[in-house]
Amino acid sequence: MSDLYREQLLEHYHEPQNYGVLPEADVDVQLDNPTCGDTIHLTARLDPEGRIAKVMFEGHGCVISMAAASMLTEDVVGKTPQEVAALELHDVEEMMGGLRLSMGRVKCALLAVNALKKGLRESGRL
C-alpha cells in the first residue's frame, strides 16, 4: 500500500527495540516536537572508552519517529559521541533501510537522533 510503511519499519514500530528507561544512565534527555506532539525520552550509557554502550527510549508519536528511535538504539551502539554528532538526515534514511523521506516527515525521523545529540551535549560528552 505504502512505500514508506514497509514491513521492517512497522516491526520496529509495533515491537520497538530497547524500549524503556535505562537505570544509572550517563545521558538522560527529553525532546518534543510540538508541531505534531511527538515526544521522546532517551537514556544512554557509555563504555569506559566513551563509546555508546546502550541506548533506551520511551515516548509516543508517529510510525516514522518511533521506528527511527527503535532503529537508532541499535545503530549507534559502539559509536563515539562525535560520530553521533556527525549523523545527518541521509544517515538516518540509510539506517531506516534507504527510505526517502518527504519534507514533512524529516522532523519525525530526526527526533531520536536530535534527542541523543542534545543529551550528549547536556551531559558534557560533546
Binding site: L4, C36, D38, I64, S102, G104
Partner: peptide
C-alpha cells in the same frame, strides 16, 4: 494511530488530507 501516519498512508492512495494542529 498518529495523524501524520494517516496522511502519509492516504497520500500513497492519492488522497490529500491535512494532519497536525
Amino acid at each position: 494511530i498518529h495523524p501524520h501516519d494517516i496522511a502519509s498512508v492516504l497520500d500513497s492512495e492519492g488522497i490529500c488530507i491535512r494532519a497536525g494542529l
